[in-house]
Design a protein around this nucleic acid. Sequence first.
DNA 1: CCAGACGTTGTT
DNA 2: GTCTGG
DNA 3: CCAGACGTTGTT
DNA 4: GTCTGG
Length: 227
Amino acid sequence: MCGRYSITDPNKAIQRLFGYDGSVLNWPPMFNIAPTADVPIVIRGGNPEGGKPRALVRARWGLIPSWAKDVKIGAKMINARSETIAEKPSFHVAWKKRRCLIAADGFYEWGRDGDRNIPYRVAYEDERPFAFAGLWERWDGPEGPVRSCAIITVSANTILAPIHHRMPVIIDPKNFERWLGIEDGPDDDLHALLSSREIKGFRPYQVSERVNRVQNNDREILAPVVA
DNA sequence: CCAGACGTTGTT
DNA sequence: GTCTGG
DNA sequence: CCAGACGTTGTT
DNA sequence: GTCTGG
């Protein structure tokens, strides 16, 4: 699963991942991102610097379906299972029309050791940024429209299985256009993107339990601790 | 037909 | 909105 | 995901 | 235990 993640340099990550200047949103470093936080995502739309039609926007983490009566439902919709995403009423429309990429440079998983939960950070060895496969939705609330998103999950691969049985889907940069729907393709192709479960070069390492508290949002959160 | 749910995770 | 249960 | 709250009444 | 907030 994926219930916390990080983007330590959002502007640089946008540049490296998507090849355009994302500094307009001027995002601060986020070491400990929790559900309901506003996060930067990339969707179809616009034409940044004359390139592919993509738009960098902010969205609340936790998908709020269009029919929701309250934003609170979003807190339960932080992940969407790839196995059932096409059938679930809450995700079906977004699956067809509103896929997104969620910029990150690490995510956190809690493993279990007896009665203790041990936090790990999972990131590329060289700390390069990557993108989760996501869905987004627009909800018209009493205080105007709210954009929200969810991270898609699959069963854990061999690297992560010892820690946890679910993990987020990472989309390879060469598949960004296919995923966003900028290039046409049948739905089977989309499922193929979700089923790769490839996270070559990823490395999980134990971190301090300080990450448990969402208020702890500082660079020390990233530091490895000795088991 | 209308009413009511609509999600994931982990744990038992 | 759309699907399921009754 | 984890942490932390979880209630009503009456009075100021 | 279960829900809310972050």
